[in-house]
């Protein structure tokens, strides 16, 4: 897991992505720019965050879940 450590906490890159989502950014491109991460890492990371219930997807946009907000603090 690249975004979530085995202990369930977000990694540095995972935390950056959660903060970007929490700020209202919703596309992989926007999040990559804000988090200064490669786009491929963000696309992969968003899949991982979604599978872990920390983010959700509506159409092409992502949004942070309540569980994700807790971990983004």
């Amino acid at each position: 897991m690249a975004c979530i450590s085995p202990d369930g906490k977000p990694t540095e890159s995972g935390a950056k992505m959660l903060r970007a989502l929490k700020s209202g950014l919703g596309s992989a491109e926007e999040i990559a720019g804000e988090a200064a991460l490669p786009l491929f890492r963000v696309r992969s990371g968003l899949r991982e965050l979604t599978q872990a219930g920390l983010a959700g997807q509506k159409n092409d946009k992502y949004e942070i879940t309540e569980k994700g907000k807790e971990l983004a603090k």
Partner: peptide
């Protein structure tokens, strides 16, 4: 860097 798909590199 985690699980990557070819489509992650699109564009």
């Amino acid at each position: 860097h985690g699980i990557l798909k070819l489509e992650d590199f699109k564009g």
